[in-house]
Design a protein around this nucleic acid. Structure first.
Lengths: 238, 238
DNA sequence: CCAAAAGTGTTACCCGTACACCCATGG
DNA sequence: CCATGGGTGTACGGGTAACACTTTTGG
């Protein structure tokens, strides 16, 4: 009974393993997607799951997630990466227990090292049509989508997901898919222009980029301004 | 490199231990508080920390948290208990790694088995004056307070924290402490009466209960009604 | 010429906020 | 009688939501 009052130097049970999984959101110009791996070997051939790896005992949770990210994208860290929570409900290893700590991150899809990974069965999947995944990974994805919904309302996620130049139509698509509802075009624009983070590039889209309609105006996010305003206490709100 | 693509049957590293900690919020009629333990033995004598225990390898995370809760309160589960996230940044055990999965719960302070635990150094501490805690438990508390802020806005937390009968003054105190700001009395009442969950008991407080001013009206929450409305899609919003 | 998306203002309603006075009680 | 909290209504402003038509472009 007073185990609760002891500092954890006693009675420890070191036969748990930790894995980390990543829920990586990307936007290809028209669709919000996430990255899945496909097992290419028996006994789970073709099963889909989230990019995952074991944590070595000395690793920090976040560093483990970042290093996995590095393997996939070739640089050290995405701008947005955050722990979701621990998921422990499903997988039992013959040797002990596996608990999975999941992270989510927002990425530029272009940065993905596709040549390197596609041959290993990795692929992007539209967020509204995620197939059955192994383990409890569907539950993790559902949790991540909820987290994303909250972040979309409080952070200019376009910074991290959109290509450097984009149209307002694309941005609206992103918001609609992330929040799971549609918006009136005029109201959407009004709302976004309340914050001064969107810069009109005064150029028109050629229509060659995915999801860009020819002739519509191109915008970009003003990162510097956002940094300055944030340090003065500004809070983005959608 | 293709570790990421393997199912987790290989290369596991079973020398991690998991602990669970509880951030237990209670309200004594006048103050929002949380429950702390005090170590009574060397080498950490007098250190304060969150109620914590080791997870045995076969335990579910949530069940472990609930069973610790049972030890403290004598019944199986609080109405609100939720995982926060995994905290792994601080403690290194000589044998391996300890990762702490924290939970938060809302409780009726009266239910705490005080006679049983006070002699073991457990005590309630006001939320706005939490002392230095061992490990990274201050960080956990900070995270839990943020979670509580969000929940206060979306759930009728009064159900779970308030005594069965309370005054509007008490309820306002709770909201003010949880959200860290003050409210105008009239606006506060207006806001709460938008939802029909508050029942006027048509009796007056005697002034004997802590935090109740004599003569003010007593209210209770209509649990049944909340259940019915919730099943019809109602969402509480403060 | 047809389809698809871009672009553009106004109105109504709701909600949040600000604000002041009198009453009841206990000390 | 003084201090503390209870109890009550109104008015303004900002934000959200609803709503339709014309233009550009590619096919």
């Amino acid at each position: 009974m007073s185990e609760m009052l002891k500092f954890p130097q006693d009675n420890t049970d070191f036969n748990v393993a930790l894995s980390t999984s990543l829920v990586l959101f990307g936007f290809d110009g028209a669709q919000l997607q996430l990255l899945l791996a496909r097992s290419q070997r028996e006994p789970f051939k073709d099963a889909l799951f989230l990019p995952s790896r074991y944590l070595e005992a000395q690793d920090e949770l976040m560093l483990s997630a970042r290093s996995m990210f590095h393997g996939l994208f070739g640089y050290d860290e995405p701008e947005i990466i955050e722990q979701l929570k621990a998921f422990g409900g499903v997988f039992r290893h013959p040797i002990g227990r596996v608990v999975n700590v999941a992270f989510y991150a927002l990425v530029r899809k272009d940065d993905f090292l596709a040549e390197k990974w596609e041959q290993h069965g990795m692929q992007w999947s539209p967020i509204d049509r995620i197939p059955d995944l192994a383990f409890d990974h569907n539950e993790i994805v559902a949790y991540a989508k909820e987290r994303l919904k909250r972040r979309v309302k409080r952070r200019p996620v376009g910074f991290h997901l959109m290509p450097p130049e984009f149209t307002l139509g694309q941005l609206q698509t992103l918001y609609e898919q992330a929040l799971g509802k549609t918006f009136d075009k005029r109201n959407f624009r009004k709302k976004l222009f309340k914050s001064p983070l969107l810069t009109d590039l005064e150029r028109k889209a050629t229509g060659r980029e995915k999801g860009q309609h020819k002739g519509s105006s191109l915008f970009t996010f003003d990162r510097d301004r956002y940094q300055r305003m944030k340090s003065e206490g500004y809070d983005f709100l959608f």
